[in-house]
């Protein structure tokens, strides 16, 4: 790093003299300069668009054009409509259920990988196995459930041939069940990876100490491993919750367009050229998700425990 910085420093020193060199060498400035590319990128591609969305959310719209304005109409409609509350509630429901299931699955898988599989080769191999579904696109993984779960799909036909059921189960597809199934399938890995990562950092001598002190396997899990894995759990949870809260395509496909979440509300508005109303919904969603994340970060200090 220091070496690459050397060239511009030399050039500027020659041109501007020793004063400039001292200025650039001061640790404060170097820090600012090092941070500035990222800050610039974030400002340009994150902060600016968000500001734009907030600005547009106060505009008004006619059927095919949007008009700069400062009106609270979009928000008034949003908070005044029962659809908004139904849809937000539905989104929270998806997020909560998906979070709970991916957490249990993710923790179990990570625990198995980290503590039960002894050989490093196998650990790597099994971990890679977990990522195989991610070699194809998100949409493909989701859509492939549709023929499987359908009325005449593989799942129903197998169950019927086993004599478990007499008639096809209708709720397998185009239902909340299929939506959550797809979410779990899509996002469990986001839980596995950070939890696995923190588990691998746990000092094994702590486990030995726990055993020596007479703790049972379950006691070690609850009192030693779980607390030490918290940062991983929290990072995974943030991934899963934000992904589910912001999703629209999974809900659309897996519910057969019959259920709505906030993302679909926004996409419908955009499709009908109601950008200001879409922006207002997006701002409310963003606020909600930020509040959720800050609440989660209160529970665990990720930086301290990493």
């Amino acid at each position: 790093m220091a070496k690459s910085l050397g060239y511009p420093k030399d050039i500027s020193a020659k041109m501007k003299g020793a004063g400039m060199e001292r200025f650039l060498k001061s640790p404060n400035i170097t820090g600012w300069l090092l941070a500035s590319p990222l800050a610039l990128v974030l400002a340009l591609f994150l902060i600016l668009p968000i500001i734009l969305i907030v600005v547009v959310s106060f505009w008004s719209a006619t059927e095919f054009s949007i008009v700069p304005d400062f009106s609270f109409e979009n928000y008034a409609f949003l908070f005044g409509s029962s659809v908004t509350y139904t849809v937000f509630l539905n989104t929270f429901k998806y997020a909560a259920i998906t979070w709970a299931i991916t957490l249990i699955l993710g923790f179990t898988i990570a625990y198995f990988l980290a503590f039960h599989v002894r050989s490093q080769t196998w650990q790597t191999a099994l971990f890679l196995l977990c990522t195989i579904p991610f070699w194809t696109s998100n949409i493909i993984r989701m859509i492939s459930w549709i023929p499987f779960l359908g009325r005449n799909g593989l799942a129903n036909e197998t169950l019927i041939s086993w004599g478990v059921i007499d008639a096809p189960l209708e709720w397998l597809l185009f239902s909340d069940f299929s939506v959550i199934l797809a979410f779990v399938h899509l996002y469990t890995l986001f839980m596995v990876v950070p939890i696995f990562n923190t588990m691998m950092r746990i000092d094994r001598s702590l486990l030995e100490a726990a055993t020596d002190a007479g703790a049972s396997g379950f006691q070690t899990l609850v009192n030693v491993i779980l607390p030490l894995t918290k940062p991983g759990i929290m990072i995974g949870s943030i991934f899963v919750v934000t992904l589910v809260m912001g999703d629209f395509i999974t809900v659309r496909f897996m519910s057969g367009s019959q259920s709505a979440n906030v993302g679909r509300l926004i996409s419908n508005d955009i499709a009908l050229l109601q950008y200001p109303s879409a922006a207002a919904t997006a701002v409310v969603l963003l606020g909600t998700v930020l509040m959720m994340i800050s609440a989660m970060l209160r529970l665990v200090d990720i930086r301290k425990e990493l």
Partner: peptide, 15 residues
């Protein structure tokens, strides 16, 4: 009444 209809349509989808 397109805008009104669209809002009603959203209600239908969310129902």
């Amino acid at each position: 009444e397109n805008q009104y209809m669209v809002r009603k349509w959203n209600e239908f989808i969310a129902a």
